[in-house]
Design a protein around this nucleic acid. Sequence first.
DNA 1: GCTGAAAATACTAATAC
DNA 2: GTATTAGTATTTTCAGC
Lengths: 157, 157
Amino acid sequence: MTFDRIDLKILDILQHDATVPVARIADQVGLSQTPCWKRIQKHEETGVIRARVALLDPQAIGLSLTVFVMVEAVAHTTQWRAEFLCVVDTLGPVRDVYRLAGGHDFMLRVVVPDMAAFDRFYKDLTARIRLRSMNSVFALETMRTTTALPLGDLMAG
Amino acid sequence: MTFDRIDLKILDILQHDATVPVARIADQVGLSQTPCWKRIQKHEETGVIRARVALLDPQAIGLSLTVFVMVEAVAHTTQWRAEFLCVVDTLGPVRDVYRLAGGHDFMLRVVVPDMAAFDRFYKDLTARIRLRSMNSVFALETMRTTTALPLGDLMAG
DNA sequence: GCTGAAAATACTAATAC
DNA sequence: GTATTAGTATTTTCAGC
């Protein structure tokens, strides 16, 4: 898979605002509507565009607490990883799961309404699987956040 | 601002797939098209729906390295925070900026193509602002990730 | 690969109930 | 809140260059 400047520009527009009509995208990238539409279609089929979603305001909905949970595994085995993943999948507040290099094995991004809800999550997690260690880092403020990928750096380089 | 079950259901559908037509959403929440459309419209105006975006596959585009950068501030002042935020805003690979409780002051989520690009980012950051400490945690694997908020927990509780 | 135009679908707004 | 309507915009397909 390879992307030319036009592809990257199309993707960059859509990852910032997916409501822009194809006609205007075509205009901005210097293409007519049909070929522009076909490129977008291709990107959807090949999975480069994974989804089109609405982003909600966590504060407005009352989900104002973000916590990063650093976890150490009891055993470094495929089986333990599978079980761990299975457990966190059943826990509603878990948004992201990363496997890490270094001291900690995993990091979870957890979103809850308040500290009480986080405590329930904490008890749920520790009840369902044994962990070597668990270290919670609380976010006081989300200063910036974006789902868009840095395509600009690719176009320049 | 208060949301009933219907509002939450509408938002939950849209945050997973924003391409679902209003007619089908109305169907699923047990409303006719007009009031359903008006609710969505209201949520867009009040900012509950912040944006509709396309989510791209980082691997497919060659942005396969995610790094979490933990930063300690040199000074705990409003001015230093503003300067720090200003600097990271100019650095392309920075996706998220969180202010943290505890030992580290900030965490950045950084997305780059490879280690060489991360090294460039590292040099850029440290050249533009003085930090007390900087600790990079590399993600070996993104096991799960979602932009959707856990609304199910709210509907149950 | 491109252009242009037609068809199908969805959105938006207004109506009366 | 529902049902219906109509006008507009967008998406999607189908020709031909």
